[in-house]
Write a protein that binds this DNA or RNA. Structure first.
Length: 154
DNA sequence: GCCAACGTTGGC
DNA sequence: GCCAACGTTGGC
C-alpha cells in the first residue's frame, strides 16, 4: 500500500465536508503530475493525509482512503463548471480522478509549522520549498509520524 | 495584500 | 525548441 498527501482548501472542501458526505470524487485537479498519480499509481485502499491549504493555520487534519478505480473527471465536460476544459473530449479525456472516502479526522491538527519543525518528517515532499503540487506521495514512516502527531492510531 | 516559486501558453 | 509573459498556488 502506498501513502499520499492531498491538499484542499477548507473554505472549498475541508475534512468536515468529507466526514459529512463520506465519499467524494477528487475533481478539479488540473495539474498533469497530480493527475498521473491518481490515474497511474493510486490503488484502492491507499491512505492519504488530508491537508488544509490556505488555512489558518495550514496543516494535516485527517486521513482519507482511495476507493474504486480511476475515471474521467466529469467537471471537465461541463461548460458551467469552473473546471471545464474545452480541449478535453469524452473519447480522449484529459483529466482523471479517483474517489476518496473519509477515514478519520485527527483529534489534534498537525500544523505545517509543526511538521517543518519535526526532525522525523525531514525530506517530506510537501515540506520542500516551492512544492505547490496538490497531491504528493508520502513515505510510510512519514505518514505514521503525522498520524501520531495528530493523536490518531489506525 | 505581497510575493516567491513554478506551470502553462504562445509567438517566433 | 526557446523563452518571455502571464496565471496560479499558497505561505506569510
Amino acid at each position: 500500500m502506498r501513502h499520499w498527501l492531498i491538499k484542499s482548501e477548507p473554505d472549498v472542501f475541508g475534512i468536515d465536508h468529507l466526514a459529512k458526505v463520506k465519499q467524494e470524487p477528487w475533481s478539479g485537479v488540473r495539474n498533469y503530475q497530480a493527475r498521473n498519480y491518481m490515474r497511474d499509481e493510486m490503488k484502492p485502499g491507499d491512505l492519504a493525509l488530508f491537508y488544509h491549504s490556505n488555512a489558518t493555520p495550514p496543516g494535516s487534519v485527517g486521513v482519507a482512503k482511495v476507493v474504486g478505480a480511476p475515471y474521467p473527471d466529469p467537471t471537465q465536460f461541463d461548460p458551467e463548471s469552473e473546471y471545464y476544459d474545452p480541449k478535453s473530449t469524452k473519447e480522449n479525456p484529459r483529466w482523471i480522478l479517483v474517489d476518496f472516502e473519509f477515514v478519520a479526522k485527527f483529534p489534534t491538527e498537525v500544523p505545517l509549522q509543526q511538521m517543518k519543525d519535526d526532525a522525523a518528517l525531514e525530506g517530506m515532499m510537501v515540506l520542500q520549498k516551492g512544492t505547490r503540487l496538490s497531491i504528493t506521495p508520502v513515505e510510510a514512516k512519514h505518514f505514521k509520524r503525522v498520524c501520531k502527531l495528530g493523536g490518531w492510531k489506525a
